[in-house]
C-alpha cells in the first residue's frame, strides 16, 4: 500500500507540473519561445494569495481569483515589454531575456518579502479520502489538484479546437505569415497565449503551495524547470503532451525520492530530459511537420 500512496502522491505532484507545463507548451507552440520566467509567475501568484489570505484575511477563493487576474496582467506585461520588442530577433536573445525576467521577478520578491520562507496555508479545506481501511489516504489537495488539472486540460483543448481565437492560435503556431494573411492579429494572439498561460500559473502556484507549503522567491524556479522537462517529454507544443509529461515526471520524482534517493531524484528527472533529447527530441506526442516543397 505504501507504493500506491507514493504513486498517488506522484500523480498529485505530476498534475501540478502538468498545469505549469501547459504554460510552457502553449507559449512555445505559438510564440516559438521558451518563457523561462513562467515558473516565477507561479511564485508571484502564490505570494499574492498569501498576502491576501494570511495578510488581509480575504476569502481564499476570491484571493485566487484576484491572483489569476494579476498574473494574467503580469504575463501580458512581460510579453509586451520584454518579448515583443524582440520578435524576429535571434532565439538566443529571447531566451536570455526570459532568464533575465525570471531573475528580475525573483529578486523583486526577495526585495519585498525578504529571505525568510513563508508558511503557505492551504486554501483547500476538505476531508481526505481513506480507502482500504485507512491504508490508502488520498488528501484533499491531491484530489483537487488532479481534478483541477484535468478540467484545465479539457477546457484548453476545447478552447483551442472549437473557438475562433483558439483556431487563430493553431494557425499562428503553424505558420505565422500565413495566419496574418488570413487576417489574424498575431500580436494579440500571442498576448492572449501569455494571458492564459500566466493565469494558469496562478492556479498552479496555489496548488503547489497548498501541497508543499514553503513559499519563497525560489518557489517557482525548480518546479518551473521540471515542468519544462515535462513539456519536452510530452512533446513541446502539445496540450495532452503536457498532461502526460507532467504526470510522468511527478511519478518518477516521488518514486525516485522514496525508493532510490531523495538527493538523486532531481538528477533522475533531468536525466530523463537528456535521454528524451537524445532518443526522441519531439517527445511522446511531439508534432512532426510534413514538409512539402
Amino acid at each position: 500500500m505504501g507504493f500506491l500512496n507514493n504513486f498517488i502522491n506522484g500523480i498529485s505532484l505530476g498534475s501540478i507540473y502538468s498545469v505549469i507545463a501547459l504554460g510552457y507548451t502553449m507559449v512555445y507552440g505559438i510564440a516559438k519561445m521558451l518563457n523561462f520566467a513562467h515558473g516565477d509567475v507561479i511564485m508571484v501568484g502564490a505570494y499574492i494569495v498569501f498576502v491576501l489570505t494570511t495578510g488581509a484575511g480575504m476569502n481564499p477563493y476570491l484571493a485566487l481569483l484576484i491572483s489569476m487576474v494579476a498574473c494574467t496582467l503580469l504575463g501580458m506585461t512581460i510579453e509586451r515589454f520584454a518579448y515583443r520588442p524582440l520578435r524576429g530577433a535571434s532565439p538566443l536573445a529571447v531566451l536570455i531575456t526570459a532568464i533575465g525576467v525570471s531573475y528580475f521577478l525573483q529578486n523583486v520578491a526577495l526585495l519585498i518579502f525578504g529571505t525568510q520562507v513563508k508558511s503557505f496555508k492551504s486554501i483547500l479545506e476538505f476531508p481526505s479520502i481513506k480507502l482500504a481501511g485507512g491504508k490508502i489516504i488520498i488528501s484533499d489537495e491531491t484530489i483537487i489538484t488532479i481534478v483541477v488539472s484535468l478540467i484545465i486540460m479539457i477546457g484548453l483543448t476545447l478552447f483551442v479546437n472549437k473557438t475562433k481565437p483558439g483556431r487563430a492560435m493553431l494557425a499562428v503556431s503553424e505558420d505565422r505569415g500565413a495566419a496574418q494573411l488570413m487576417g489574424v492579429n498575431v500580436n494579440a494572439t500571442i498576448a492572449l497565449t501569455f494571458a492564459i498561460g500566466s493565469g494558469l500559473a496562478a492556479v498552479a502556484g496555489v496548488l503547489l503551495c497548498s501541497t508543499y507549503p514553503a513559499l519563497s522567491s525560489q518557489t517557482g524556479a525548480m518546479p518551473g524547470i521540471k515542468a519544462f522537462v515535462a513539456a519536452v517529454l510530452g512533446g513541446i507544443g502539445s496540450i495532452p503532451g503536457a498532461l502526460i509529461g507532467g504526470l510522468a515526471i511527478g511519478v518518477v520524482e516521488i518514486l525516485s525520492k522514496t525508493y532510490i534517493s531523495s538527493q538523486l531524484a532531481d538528477a533522475i528527472v533531468f536525466a530523463i530530459l537528456i535521454i528524451v533529447l537524445l532518443v526522441k527530441p519531439t517527445g511522446i506526442l511531439g508534432k512532426k511537420y510534413i514538409e512539402k516543397v
Binding site: R167, A168, L170, A171, E174, D175, G177, A178, A179, L181, M182, V184, K287, Y289, I290, K292
Partner: peptide
C-alpha cells in the same frame, strides 16, 4: 502555405 495540420474545412474557415 495551407495549414497542414488542419482539415480542409478548418482552413477555409480561417
Amino acid at each position: 502555405r495551407v495549414f497542414q495540420q488542419l482539415s480542409v474545412l478548418e482552413n477555409l474557415k480561417l
